[in-house]
């Protein structure tokens, strides 16, 4: 003889209903909310280039005065293919340990840090005079070393 199906009590059915509603509510709470997005920028962000970087120099505060010193003393340089090399005074090291190549362009001077040249490479001003902030290297062949 088959058993008659068990009838659930109304109280148990109500408990089930409450449970289902509670789960639905919790699920609703955890649904990913669509947050308002900021409007897309309609302009490009311009990162200002420092005065030094604009002429090819690293952002080193010691070099702050270099472009102006260079402009004043550039006529002492020997230029080869619009380029010259020079050493700049390093106040912390108290020597000319900053070394650069300068390029002459119609827009002005551009600079590029270079390794300290070979010690045999001669300065234009052979008489040591550390009063100058800039010392130019000889970039043209030394007339004394030419062979006829």
């Amino acid at each position: 003889m088959a058993d008659a199906p068990q009838q659930r009590s109304p109280l148990a059915r109500a408990g089930w209903l409450v449970g289902v509603f509670a789960l639905a509510w919790i699920g609703f709470l955890f649904l990913p909310m669509r947050r308002p997005q900021p409007p897309e920028s309609s302009f490009d962000v311009v990162v200002p280039t420092s005065k030094l970087r604009a002429v090819g120099l690293p952002d080193n505060p010691d070099l702050e005065g270099l472009p102006d010193f260079f402009e004043v003393w550039a006529s002492r340089a020997e230029w080869r293919d619009e380029r010259t090399e020079f050493a700049y005074w390093n106040p912390a090291a108290k020597d000319y340990s900053y070394t650069f190549e300068a390029t002459r362009t119609p827009e002005g001077y551009r600079f590029r840090p270079i390794p300290v040249p070979d010690p045999a490479k001669r300065f234009l001003d052979e008489v040591i005079d550390d009063d100058y902030p800039i010392r130019f290297y000889r970039t043209l062949p030394d007339p004394a070393s030419r062979r006829d």
Binding site: P61, D62, L63, E64, G65, D68, F69, V72, W89, P91
Partner: peptide
């Protein structure tokens, strides 16, 4: 005046740079 700025920078021994602008 250029010479004056240079002379003052020499007083301080800093040159023109981080601590002293033109």
């Amino acid at each position: 005046r250029w010479a004056a700025k240079e002379a003052v920078s020499k007083c301080f021994t800093t040159g023109i740079g981080e601590h002293l602008h033109w």
